[in-house]
Every structure is written in structure tokens, then in C-alpha cells.
Computed example of a mutant assay.
Amino acid sequence: MLNFREVLGYWFVNNTMEELVNEVHTRIEDARKTFIVTANPEIITYAQSHSYYEKIIKHSDYIIPDGIGIVIASRLKRQPLQERLAGFDLMYNLLKLSDQHHYKIYLLGTKPDIIDLSALNIKKAFPHLEIVGFHHGYFHDDDNIIEEIKQAKPDLVFVGLGFPKQEKWISHNLKHFDKGIFIGIGGCLNIWAGVNNRAPKFMRDLNLEWLYRLIKEPSRSKRMLAIPIFLKRVLSNEFFK
């Protein structure tokens, strides 16, 4: 049973990674369709300004705190979340779980010349899971992809279209499937392909992964403005009601 904490009107999973993975494992075994949002301050800030997207986020099954800004915000509210649940770490742990139990995986996202490499590297790392299909993220018609997923019956579907597109795609198409854990994973497929790298472990341990990404991708600077905006809203919400 998972616990939840509220931050700015959004209910985040307040558990360890192990507990979250165990919950997902149970839902896979029970063939329960599940929509997981990996939310950072940028996603929440965007949702607060786009009501259609906020509705999508709030109607998901689980929102996990993927971003140290979310954890800091919970501390400012004096209702601290147990830990940051990074999207890449969740994906890694679920791939490991799939390797142990021979679960079926479908990958959707990134560029046409990258998705093949993502799938190849995932299969090398986890030889006992079954990748039942993959497709790049540059498509205009959902029908063929939906039909392919329906026929393949994957246990987990990792959708790396970037926000808000990945959450919109999952929300709009979930009704077509009988089962599956659907997770928006942002740029994780690029990391698996080796196109991008995660921050060194010492930076991750210091919760500075966002800084590493900013140094590597200066074009993200405008997107990073969402973090102070988010924290300002948290403070205003807490102290100036």
C-alpha cells in the first residue's frame, strides 16, 4: 500500500523506490492498467498554467516526485517526502524486475535512429526481458502504434515523448488497452542509447543532477526557470494564504 503527500494540490507518492517497485509489480501480476507520471517542478508549473494538462496529471494513478525541487517543496511545507523517485531509476528498477520475471516491454519515443540503439542496449543489460516492440516518437497517426501494442500485450510501456506530449498520449490512448503499466520517461531512452549521459553518481547523491543537465545542455536554461517559479508558489501557498 502506497502513501501520499500533497504539494500544491498534487498528491505525490511518499514511499521508497523499493516500495514503489513492489506496488508496480503487484499491479503487473494483477494485470491492472496503470498510468504513472514522473513529475518535476517544470511539469507541475506547466500543469498549473494549462488546465487540460493538470486534469491529465491529477487523473493518473500515481505521481512520483522526479525532481529535488518537489522534495524541497514538501520540506518547506513541513510534510517531507521520503525521497526523490527519479524517473530513470524507476525505469531501471522496472527493467530489472522485468528481467527477473520475463516481463514484456514496449518502448515509444526518441528519434528514429536512436530508438533501435536504446532497445539494443536495454536488451544487452537485461537479456531475460522481452522487448515486444518499439517505435520512434516522430509519428502523426496513433492507430498503427496502438494496434501494435494491443497485439503485443506488453506488461510495461515506456513512453519517452517529452512532456506534455507523453502524458497526453497515455491519457488519450489508455482506454484502448486491456493491461499495462504506462510511464512517461522523458529523455531516458536517449540515455539508454548513449546519446546523453546521467550525472556522475556524486552529483546525483548531492541532488545536483539538474545542474549537470544544465551544464551539458545550456539550452535548458529557460526551462530551468520553472524551479524558482515553482518554489515561489510553494512558499506563497504555505505562508501567504
Rank of each mutant, 00 (worst) to 15 (best):
N3K: 12
R5I: 14
E6Q: 15
V7G: 03
Y10N: 09
N15K: 12
E19Y: 10
L20N: 06
V24I: 15
I28G: 01
D30A: 14
R32M: 07
I36D: 05
T38C: 09
T38G: 04
T38V: 12
N40F: 07
P41F: 08
P41I: 05
I44Y: 01
Y46T: 12
A47H: 03
S49V: 06
S51T: 15
Y52H: 12
D61K: 02
Y62A: 03
I64N: 06
P65M: 08
I70W: 02
A73Y: 06
S74V: 04
E83N: 13
E83Y: 04
R84F: 04
R84K: 15
G87I: 01
G87Q: 05
F88G: 04
L94E: 02
L94K: 10
L97M: 14
L97A: 04
D99V: 04
Y103V: 02
I105D: 01
I105R: 02
Y106C: 03
Y106W: 13
Y106P: 11
T110L: 11
I114H: 07
L117S: 13
L129A: 01
G137C: 13
Y138W: 12
H140N: 15
H140L: 11
H140F: 13
D141I: 11
Q151P: 05
P154H: 03
P154R: 00
P154M: 10
L156C: 05
P164G: 10
W169S: 11
W169C: 14
I170R: 10
S171Y: 14
K175Q: 13
K179F: 07
G180A: 00
G180E: 10
G184Y: 09
N190I: 06
I191A: 02
N196F: 15
P200M: 08
F202E: 03
F202A: 01
L206H: 08
L208E: 09
Y212S: 14
E217F: 09
P218D: 11
S219D: 13
S219M: 11
S219I: 12
R220A: 12
R223G: 08
L225G: 05
R233F: 00
N237L: 00
